[in-house]
């Protein structure tokens, strides 16, 4: 098990390095000079050259990359051009804002999605199954930003139940904060619930058709024991992989949800950074996002080792 974890960590680090390198290369092939954009049309050549040197943009790309990487490790994440501050001061609040949407949404969607999936699989071909599968299909086809607008229209504008948009840190005003988070969390969750329900259902059905389930039946076990002990444990194996892969997409969804609800998270920060060709900020944010995605993947992989004895015990 220890070797397995070490192997997984090593792999994640390698992948992370490739991610950063790719981002760096693409970012630096972008046409348009960020300094010129930052200084505006009235800038003189001297000014541009001066700032280019300050930000180190005159050096070879690879040197810049190594410098940036070293900075990441030592905690100097660089300076944002468009916000004119250190990125390290910019990020924490933004991350907290994003996490306060994504974490509740992750918890809700995993619990509800898996539960609905199990119910659909156990009652397969019944009306519950049709209902769950049908809703899941529609849920997966619904764009998050549109759903958000629909919610805003119905819950905020028509029924006046919740505030339209905005974000208040929970530490500042808890009730208001929660009220403002309800819609973003719901919107972000619905798509994932649909996705997890679908995946759980098919993973369960896959397992139910296997020989050892027949063995369990032949032993006279209760159907409930068979489903919840024998089938579910095996269905978790593919499911956990799917879960690990999809956490990243939840982060992708936040960009849109943050945009609709005007939440100052890293998603909306990324948009601003991209629009302003703020090299370093974009790189740092994508690094953080992939760090989260890879981190959750890693946790899931280790979890996987615990669920599947074929990996744990040789």
């Amino acid at each position: 098990m220890g070797r397995y974890i070490v192997k997984r960590v090593a792999q994640s680090v390698i992948v992370l390095l490739i991610v950063t390198l790719l981002i760096f290369l693409v970012m630096h092939s972008i046409p348009g000079n960020p300094i010129r954009l930052y200084l505006g049309d009235g800038a003189t050549t001297e000014q541009i050259e001066y700032y280019t040197e300050v930000f180190g943009f005159d050096q070879p790309v690879l040197v810049q990359y190594v410098k940036w990487l070293r900075g990441i490790v030592t905690g100097e994440w660089g300076r944002s051009i468009c916000f004119a501050t250190d990125i390290t001061t910019l990020l924490p609040d933004r991350i907290v804002a994003t996490l306060s949407v994504t974490i509740p949404s992750l918890v809700i969607s995993v619990i509800l999605g898996v539960l609905l999936g199990i119910i659909a699989a156990v009652k397969r071909n019944g009306w519950i199954d049709s209902l769950v599968s049908g809703c899941a299909n529609i849920g997966m086809a619904t764009p998050a930003f549109w759903l958000a607008i629909l919610f805003v229209y119905i819950l905020a504008l028509k029924c006046k139940l919740l505030p339209v948009q905005g974000y208040t840190p929970l530490t500042e005003d808890f009730t208001l904060g929660v009220r403002k988070l309800v819609m973003p969390v719901l919107v972000l969750s619905l798509g994932s619930i649909a996705y997890y329900a679908r995946q759980t259902r098919s993973a369960m059905l896959e397992v139910i058709n296997q020989d050892f389930i027949r063995t369990a039946r032949s032993k006279g076990l209760k159907e409930r024991t068979i489903m919840l002990v024998h089938a579910l444990h095996n269905a978790l194996i593919p499911l956990v992989t799917v879960l690990g892969m999809s956490i990243g997409n939840l982060l992708g969804g936040t960009v849109l949800v943050e945009q609709v609800f005007c939440i100052p998270g890293i998603g909306s920060l990324l948009l601003t950074a991209i629009l302003n060709v703020d090299y370093i900020l974009v790189q740092d944010i994508i690094l953080i996002m992939s760090l989260f995605a890879l981190g959750s993947n890693l946790i899931v992989d280790i979890l996987y080792g615990y669920i599947d004895p074929r990996i744990r015990v040789k």
Binding site: D211, G220, H233
Partner: peptide, 24 residues
């Protein structure tokens, strides 16, 4: 039925590789 299954009539299946639950 469940009393009969396993209790009165036991079954040994063909595929020893897939007939046992791999995670138990």
């Amino acid at each position: 039925l469940r009393q009969i299954r396993g209790g009165q009539i036991g079954v040994i299946f063909q595929e020893p590789m897939t007939s046992l639950n791999p995670v138990m």
